[in-house]
Design a protein around this nucleic acid. Structure first.
Lengths: 217, 217
DNA sequence: AGTTGATTTTAGGTGCACCTAAATTTAGGT
DNA sequence: ACCTAAATTTAGGTGCACCTAAAATCAACT
């Protein structure tokens, strides 16, 4: 894999996984990137040498300021391309992730600027994910995963994680952006749910419920 | 450099250089790709093993049918992206080559199809180069390099080679697409020219004259 | 035909991102 | 505290595209 390509994927991965607290376990990152644990350690060392991450052996990695700047830039480019794919090329929102993944790595600063302009400076991508500004700031609109809500809550879908098979699944279940739904049942033992979307009820596993982000309505 | 990336660049290079007759010398290809002669030989062997080129040692390389198909596909993608960069992002025609070069290597068949449609099925790119169809056929509009014309000929610029520094130079000299010009002088010894473009006369070296394609008007 | 000079291929080596398997460190239960 | 299981790092190795320098081949001129 090309030099920049890998660096960018690692940084983006670390950024994504560290949303909660601080360090990310190498094994966690390895699983995310679908790469062997040992390979990750090696790459982490190179990134640390370039001052893009902090590495405490056996403890985990976290992004430095410049690492974070790069990570957010990649996320911005990814989401701008997703917007392009939907608005200009007519893709569906569950088809765009992989295409955008490849495009984001061949995007110059100039192109990013022009793409943003051509799209009318969008604030969110087709999944509802906020698009950070050139300076790396996010619009702080609050939302939480569906999994944190309880029976009786009525919520609106704000964004859907563009990872793995979640999108295709969500699409087939009729769980689109801006759809309203009500939590009907929530299983104690595994966190899965039954929700009402429009006229019909739908079973949702915990994994999916953690990838669907909503706001009370 | 990534695996596909290289393969695609080699095939495109061979295609470009073999426009006249048959085989391309490895050294010629090496110069074009800015890569050492020895490296090219090695890569050629791999391409030959995949049946993308024919290689006669010490004689040269030429594309097989499937090699040519791939080469033309890359050219098509390159030119579609150039069109996108100009029409959607507002780039100037002399800024787009390198950006398109990177985009063409991350283009899926589906994306190529949709891009073509979104652009309104264009026949030529912003340099006037014909865009081949999905099946690899070219529209056979005839044009020749400016260098083949003589004093007194009045011609229109149909396309400009998107290579090296030619574009920037052409742009600064006021030699744009669809501009008309008249050949005023042609030097016997080195083939350079003086042409009249609009109100003023312009000196053009032979190298540039070989990269500007025109049709009599 | 033989030598010479240019072109081309071979040989050996680099850096990179990845892998597998073995060694090391850490953390949890008794 | 100790021992064990899991997580992590190290060690050694692969494939790839590239490089440089030496060897082989071709072509052209006497």
């Amino acid at each position: 894999m090309a030099k920049n390509q890998s660096t960018e994927d690692y940084l983006k991965g670390i950024y994504k996984l560290q949303h909660n607290g601080k360090g990310v376990a190498t094994s966690e990152l390895a699983k995310h990137l679908k790469i062997g644990d040992g390979s990750v350690t090696g790459m982490i060392k190179k990134l640390a040498a370039k001052r893009l991450v902090h590495h405490t052996p056996y403890k985990g990695v976290s992004l430095t300021a410049s690492g974070k700047r790069l990570a957010v830039q990649m996320i911005r480019r990814h989401r701008l391309w997703e917007m392009f794919l939907v608005k200009f090329l007519g893709y569906r929102w569950d088809e765009i992730h992989d295409e955008a993944e490849r495009l984001e790595h061949v995007t110059s600063q100039e192109m990013e600027r022009r793409l943003d302009k051509a799209l009318g400076y969008p604030k969110v991508d087709p999944h509802g994910d906020p698009i950070p500004t050139m300076n790396g700031e996010f619009d702080g609109t609050a939302y939480s995963p569906l999994s944190e809500f309880e029976v009786g809550d009525r919520v609106k879908i704000i964004r859907v994680d563009d990872d793995q098979g979640v999108l295709q699944l969500a699409a087939t279940l009729g769980l689109g952006l801006n759809k309203n739904l009500t939590v009907k049942e929530k299983m104690k033992f595994d966190g899965s749910m039954i929700v009402k979307v429009g006229p019909k009820e739908q079973f949702i596993s915990q994994r999916i419920a953690k990838s669907i982000f909503v706001r009370v309505v």
